[in-house]
Write a protein that binds this DNA or RNA. Sequence first.
DNA 1: GTCTATAGCTGGATAGAC
DNA 2: GTCTATCCAGCTATAGAC
Lengths: 213, 213
Amino acid sequence: MLNGPATTGWREARHQSARQAIVDAAWELVHEEGLAALSIRDLAKRAGITTPTVYAYFESKQAIYDAMFGRAATEFSELMTGPFDDDDPARLLLSSVRRFVEFCMTDVARYQLLFQRTIPGFEPSAESYAPAVRALESARGRLAHNGVTEPRHLDLWTALLTGLVDQQVSNDPGGDRWTRLIDEAVAMFLAHCRPGPTAPVGTSRSPTRGARR
Amino acid sequence: MLNGPATTGWREARHQSARQAIVDAAWELVHEEGLAALSIRDLAKRAGITTPTVYAYFESKQAIYDAMFGRAATEFSELMTGPFDDDDPARLLLSSVRRFVEFCMTDVARYQLLFQRTIPGFEPSAESYAPAVRALESARGRLAHNGVTEPRHLDLWTALLTGLVDQQVSNDPGGDRWTRLIDEAVAMFLAHCRPGPTAPVGTSRSPTRGARR
DNA sequence: GTCTATAGCTGGATAGAC
DNA sequence: GTCTATCCAGCTATAGAC
């Protein structure tokens, strides 16, 4: 704790605080106007400063998106790695899914920024992305506690969950036409992936193409 | 065939032909630059005309997107309602999924326009949207031939498929990390939704909340 | 219908005084 | 760090001659 970036002087603290205030304003605007509609002018106005001042804290618009991504990823990670007051692995898994879906549905813009690639040239930096990886690791752990350890089943898992969320936000925003299928979807998944019946015999291996990694 | 909009005079035919040429150019550009990057200037240049001429054929930029959507939806409908040379319902269903995924993966921009809502203020007109409904109906029929008739299972089906495609295009473009899970996903789905075992006993009904529609 | 020319606006980003 | 003032680029859409 003695060296490293921890020794934040007063100025550095002020600086970070001002940055946070700008990111606050950015999220406000995005919630009102949509993720793609963010402009530096509007952002400055909302934050009570002027355009050049924004550039005193952020190198470019992309840097602002990156800071927004970082906050969203941190929120996501803290939510998904936080404690679950349940001992049964299956129920715990279900709780985690409900948290995930709730997280996505309560803030669609945040969902779009985190999980869809909708901003033209934007790619999150490694630092901003790191928390999201931690959240995925926690999901892997919860699946393992349910006897699901195959890597491809983790992929099937993410596809199933994002598919439910995606259909919900795209085709029934504010409703529950897909979210109410959560329990059934998880049951279907576990019934298929749990160890008991091992891999179904390869009925349709892709022809041609030699070894691939 | 005598009345209605069918009696296309020579001029009307020319007009439609010119419109198609503009939509051609629009798709070319979108494939190169991305869906959101389409601009009327570039479009005119690509089509070998000038900006005002574009407006002689389309009322606005949104109208161009709508025409693009209409073509995409028609392609989608014709592909999915076309003949499948297979008698076994399960294999036919699998073929349809492969067609669907292939359709999405071979043209990501088309997929985004059709299935994601990524253009700011754009909503397809009813006419442009109609073919997509037909395609969904055909999917319902194929599921019914596999004994899957519950409406909520159709929703689960669309969630599963779009989830696979979405993860594939978002996290492994050009690869097959999720598309290779298609067979397994369909097997999982059918095992769960086929009539045999009726609805699993409600293990986790949501507490509180009285009757809801 | 097609052009030249341009209106009218909004965007990201910067110069330079303080 | 914060401001005023502005540059410059891009956009959609239109006016008006031909």
